[in-house]
Amino acid sequence: MQIVINALVLGIMYILAALGFAFIFNMLGTINLGHGALYMVGAYLCYYLCAAAGINNWIAMIISAAVLAVVGLLLERVMFRLFLDNFDRIVMISVGIITICQTIANLLTGSKALVIPSYANGLTTIFGMSISNERLVTFGVGLLLLLATLYVVNYTALGRQMEAVAQDRLGAALQGINTNRVSAAVCAIGVGLAAVAGCFMGAYLGLSSSMGDTMNLRILMLVMLAGAGSMNGIIITGTVMGFLDAICQMAFAGNAGSAVPIIIIVILLLIKPKGFFGHDA
């Protein structure tokens, strides 16, 4: 039961962080390696809003998500839109973003221990097991955001436009969809969600300049496993990854606990190279 809870909380965080990456991947057909760094920046911003400005941590999270959403808009305008057909350039710029963000975080942090104030204290006993309220809140809010995102993707005009752009950008444009506006909205939502995930993880585990690297690897695997163009598939693969991580950590010692899930995912990708829920686009 404890494993199930761990898996669900981890899975939700992976999904939230990965949705933004997947949005950009599906809409623009490119990989934003800087996504993990933006997740980290969101967490740091939230911390400094709480610590330096004395703002309530929930409000700080909302501000952080909003600021990062604007950053997403800017990135779409100055990076993705300009270099849409130049994969190499986007990868290089993404690596630059990571280096810049990490160096700034190191300069700011130094050796200090930075932790975002907890969103909930205390323990709750469910079926005779202790679960921290922080984990419950993380799971609850993560689930709400996920459902909201799913609603937008599946039941709104923007969602339908996103699906159209993901399937065929030129075709969508010919149908009168403003593809640039859709891309900008996607980047804003995606980076904002990454910031929210960063804020929760920053409260749960503390901050470090490299926190985005670990998440980046998970995100990349999760999106590949879901397959290109699939939004809903990410939810399933995110949950699977949460379970894989939680189980392998119990079953294998040390770095093997991290390596085994990757090996399993590589094998799964060998069986289904296009992922489990993707389409040919």
């Binding site: 585990l205 690297d213 670990t214 998970r218 939680a246 950590q249 606990g257």
Partner: peptide
């Protein structure tokens, strides 16, 4: 011995 990876994202299992 409880050995966790250096890049652990969640310590609950350990």
């Amino acid at each position: 011995m409880v050995i966790y990876p250096g890049d652990t994202t969640d310590y609950s299992s350990y």
